[in-house]
Design a protein around this nucleic acid. Structure first.
Lengths: 119, 119
DNA sequence: TTAACATATGAACAATCATTCATATGTTCA
DNA sequence: TGAACATATGAATGATTGTTCATATGTTAA
C-alpha cells in the first residue's frame, strides 16, 4: 500500500482491499463517459416527451411540436440531439421529415426509470 | 379540429388523429419531470462511478473518494444528490458514514444503458 | 474537555445547456 | 422559376450544475 499523498482521511485508514477491487472492476473512462452522456439525453423532460410521443407512432417534426405544444425550433434542436445519440432515426417524406424510435432499448430504459419512480 | 393559433406548420396539416392519441397517452407533467430528474442523476460520470464502486461493496466516503481519486468534498456533494434520489442509502458507523446501493433498479438501469452503448 | 479524524455544507465560479429569435436550407406545386 | 411550406441551424441568453475552497458538524479516543 503506497503512501503517496494525503487523502480525505489518512491514507492508512483507506480500506485498500475494497478500493483496489473497485478500481480494478471500474469500466474505462471512455465507457463511463459514454454511459453518462447517454443518460444525460434522458435527463430532459422535453426529450422524454418526444420519446413518449414516438412510442405511439412515428411523427413529423410539426406533429411533435403540436403534441408538446412547443416551437418547431426547440423540437428540431432536441431531435438533433436524440438522433446523434442514435435514440431516434429519421427519413424525409416529401416536405416533411419523419422521426421514429431507433430501437427498443429506449422503451426498456424508460420503463426501468418509471419502475423506480413509482415505487 | 380547433384552429386556435399558428403552429410550426399550418394547423390544417397537423395529423390530429396521431397527435390527439399521443397527447392522450402522454404521462402527466409531474411524472415526466420526475423521470427526467431521475435520469439526470445518471447523467454525470462522477455519480456513475460512485454507483459502480458501490456495485462491489458498501463503502465509506473516504474510500469512494480514494477509488475515484477525487476530493472528499466533491464526493460528499454527489452522495447527497444520490441519496436524495433514493439511489443510495447510508448509515453511520463510528466516525465513518457507510454508503450503499438502495435497490436493484440502479443495476438494471445502468445495464440497459450499457446495452445501448455497446451495440 | 481537547485533539484528531471523518463527513457535510454554503458560497463562488466556470462550464454546460435548453430555448428563443432570425434566418438558411430543402421540397413541392402551380 | 417563384411562392409557400417544412425543417434545420447559428448566435445569444438565462438557467442549471459540478467542483473547489473554506469551514462547520459530528465522532472517537486520550
Amino acid at each position: 500500500m503506497a503512501i503517496t499523498d494525503v487523502e480525505c482521511c489518512e491514507e492508512q485508514h483507506v480500506h485498500t482491499d475494497i478500493t483496489d477491487k473497485a478500481k480494478k472492476d471500474m469500466p474505462g473512462e471512455d465507457e463511463l463517459y459514454d454511459l453518462a452522456e447517454l443518460f444525460k439525453i434522458f435527463g430532459d423532460s422535453t426529450r422524454i416527451k418526444i420519446l413518449f410521443a414516438l412510442f405511439e407512432e412515428e411523427m413529423c417534426v410539426c406533429d411533435i411540436a403540436d403534441t408538446l405544444n412547443m416551437t418547431q425550433s426547440a423540437i428540431s434542436h432536441q431531435l438533433r440531439i436524440l438522433k446523434q445519440s442514435k435514440l431516434v432515426g429519421n427519413r424525409r417524406e416529401g416536405k416533411s421529415v419523419i422521426y421514429f424510435l431507433a430501437d427498443d432499448h429506449v422503451r426498456t430504459i424508460i420503463d426501468q426509470g418509471l419502475n423506480h419512480i413509482e415505487e
